[in-house]
């Protein structure tokens, strides 16, 4: 038996009590603070659901054609999305896409500025690195408990949980990408009198873009992988179908919903990769 060094019960009670205190005293304020996020998320979801299915599939195919100038990718993407609809999961698929896109956007809004700060300051990097490790490895249920306590089950805690898990890659790769920018180019820009901001906008960010794009891709994939957990706290979507499959012991439902998630992942991964490749070739500074 491990010796009891101090009374953990009172320690844990203290934590729980302070959580309760925050919920009772600050719950309403916090919920109000997050309501714009909820409104945005609902608007995005409603908007995508309002579009007829063929318009949405057409738009995704069109984007992938613009990126690759090739019919192979749009064709594959179109077939996969069509199949998801064909097995009866179209609305869930759109809800999942909405949550994934929203989580990705929020992750970029947080991750890119922090990534830039990490690349410029050793102190920020030293603080952020272990934090990112914790965010990626800590089981999401642990922070879902207080999130649900504060905000109630629903889309916003699901979004927060997804963002906490998915923000790390874009932050890490923004940092890496900027630090890997050819120092000669940054020096040249400096020698012509560029300030820190101009250095960032004219040289560092554009040259780091392919690496940042790889981070965005990973962030999207990680956001997708969170949909099952997110649906446990009321996010709906394909994850909810998987949950129902478990609850009703319906193998077919779980399997089809799972495969749909995989198909969705393939669609967004291929589009993001194609875009990253295109950026890489248009940027690359190697001789010929």
């Amino acid at each position: 038996m491990f010796p009891e060094l101090f009374d953990t019960r009172s320690f844990r009670e203290a934590i729980d009590r302070s959580a309760d205190w925050v919920v009772t005293n600050w719950g309403a304020t916090i919920e109000a603070a997050f309501s714009p996020l909820l409104r945005g998320l609902v608007l995005l979801e409603q908007g995508l659901l309002w579009l007829p299915w063929y318009v949405l599939i057409g738009a995704v195919c069109g984007i992938s054609f613009l990126i690759t100038r090739n019919v192979k990718l749009p064709l594959g993407v179109g077939i996969l999305l069509f199949l998801i609809g064909a097995v009866g999961f179209w609305d869930d698929c759109v809800r999942t896409i909405a949550l994934m896109l929203a989580a990705t956007l929020v992750s970029l809004a947080i991750g890119i500025p922090f990534g830039i700060a990490m690349s410029l300051s050793l102190t920020v990097r030293t603080i952020m690195r272990p934090l990112l490790d914790i965010m990626q490895t800590m089981p999401s249920f642990v922070y879902l408990i207080p999130a649900v306590m504060l905000l109630g089950p629903g889309k916003v805690p699901a979004l927060l949980a997804t963002v906490i898990y998915a923000v790390a890659p874009v932050m890490r790769l923004t940092d890496l990408g900027i630090r890997q920018v050819d120092p000669d180019v940054v020096e040249a820009v400096t020698s012509f009198g560029a300030g820190d901001w101009q250095k960032l906008i004219h040289a560092q960010l554009p040259l780091a873009l392919p690496t940042i794009m790889a981070g965005i891709n990973q962030t999207m994939m990680m956001a997708l992988s969170m949909v099952v957990i997110a649906s446990m706290i009321g996010a709906g979507g394909l994850g909810y179908q998987v949950l129902q499959g478990i609850g009703r012991l319906e193998v077919s439902r779980g399997l089809l919903a799972g495969l749909s998630i995989v198909a969705l992942a393939i669609v967004f991964d291929r589009i993001a990769q194609a875009y990253g490749r295109r950026m890489q070739t248009s940027l690359h500074m190697n001789d010929e």
């Binding site: 050819d182 000669d184 180019v185 020096e187 040249a188 820009v189 020698s191 004219h202 040289a203 554009p206 040259l207 940027l283 690359h284 500074m285």
Partner: peptide, 8 residues
């Protein structure tokens, strides 16, 4: 610069 330092 020796390595040009052009914005690609």
């Amino acid at each position: 610069f020796q390595n040009f330092g052009l914005l690609p």
